[in-house]
């Protein structure tokens, strides 16, 4: 309300001429956000633009003397159909995203629905499910590869009780098993966000549905789920961005990242960002590497816009309240 009132007041005073007080307020505003604004300009905007410029050159990170513009060559080289590394890594990344995002969201939501029931020891279970999220990824990757190790792993050891001598090469033969780690690491945070969403749904709505004779499943499908769509929408966008950027876990599990920067991992497990990483830091192809980074940036932007565009068909928005962002 206050925003509206001040806006009305301002328009009365005339927006072209700011009062001394408003001018001072604006000055304070910019003073206060200046640390962020300076960082935004020098550590985000300028690097982004420099990167964009570099993506049209043959820059190798060392010598500015030999730099020359190559036009769209880096982009053409990346998108060339014969560039197997590019297409393979892009395919791996999309497959990963297409599994990770829906599975992660469904499990988080399912867990949240379970946690939303009246249960004894609910805080304890919630705590347990959130613990993986606080474990640093380098450590998590370690624990994971031990669990599924072919010879010394726990999973094969347990399977050996049923079929002695089980030695499945989980890590080597089943690349998408790294999704287990993704889900394990992300599900706790997702659960808490969905739980907050579920608890924000007025119970009268659900009661009304029950009185009208709706079953539990129907109530969930027609009352709870629509009201959760804004949360689902936001989580899906963040999930897609996160999944497309997957980098550390495959390197930690399949590579032996040395301080030289050389990641030494089999190419068939390349994710897109790993391909970018190796081009930049192993081969010093900065120009080409930044072009690759911009390609995924554009893909992310297009996917986000696509989701935003379709959101009007499936995302249910309440009337915005005071203090809401959008």
């Amino acid at each position: 309300m206050h925003d509206v009132l001040t806006m009305v007041k301002r328009s009365g005073e005339g927006r072209r001429v700011m009062t001394a007080r408003a001018r001072q307020e604006a000055r304070d505003f910019f003073l206060m956000i200046s640390p962020w604004l300076l960082g935004f300009i020098f550590l985000s905007v300028i690097p982004l633009l420099l990167g964009l410029v570099a993506s049209f050159t043959n820059y190798n990170g060392l010598n500015l003397g030999t730099i020359k513009f190559v036009g769209l060559d880096n982009y053409k080289r990346a998108l060339n159909l014969e560039n197997k590394d590019f297409w393979l890594s892009l395919r791996n990344t999309f497959m990963y995203m297409l599994i990770a995002v829906p599975v992660g969201q469904v499990l988080s939501l399912g867990l949240a629905a379970l946690m939303n029931q009246k249960l004894k020891a609910r805080p304890l279970f919630r705590l347990m499910y959130y613990i993986p999220s606080v474990i640093p990824l380098a450590a998590a990757a370690r624990a994971w590869s031990m669990m599924w190790n072919k010879n010394s792993g726990l999973v094969n050891a347990l399977l050996s009780f049923m079929r002695p001598g089980t030695a499945i090469n989980w890590v080597g033969d089943h690349f998408y098993l790294i999704l287990y780690l993704y889900v394990w690491w992300h599900v706790g945070g997702g659960m808490i966000i969905y739980l907050a969403g579920l608890q924000g749904i007025p119970s009268e709505l659900k009661e009304a549905a029950t009185i009208d004779g709706a079953s539990k499943v129907q109530t969930f499908r027609h009352v709870t789920l629509p009201l959760l769509t804004p949360v689902i929408f936001f989580q899906t966008i963040l999930g897609i961005i996160g999944a497309l950027q997957t980098l550390d876990v495959p390197i930690l599990i399949y590579g032996r990242a040395g301080l030289s920067g050389n990641i030494q991992m089999p190419q068939k497990y390349y994710m897109y960002m790993i391909y970018v990483y190796s081009q930049v830091f192993d081969f010093q192809r900065y120009g080409y590497g930044v072009a690759l980074a911009w390609i995924i940036f554009i893909i992310v932007l297009l996917l986000t816009l696509l989701l935003l565009y379709t959101s009007r068909y499936w995302v249910y928005y309440e009337v915005p309240q005071e203090g809401d962002t959008a």
Partner: peptide, 21 residues
């Protein structure tokens, strides 16, 4: 809106030029 949109930029896009700088 700029603050929020920075959350959408893949880290690699800024990290590589940051590293160069």
């Amino acid at each position: 809106i700029l603050v929020l949109s920075m959350m959408m930029v893949p880290g690699m896009v800024t990290i590589i030029p940051n590293f160069m700088l």
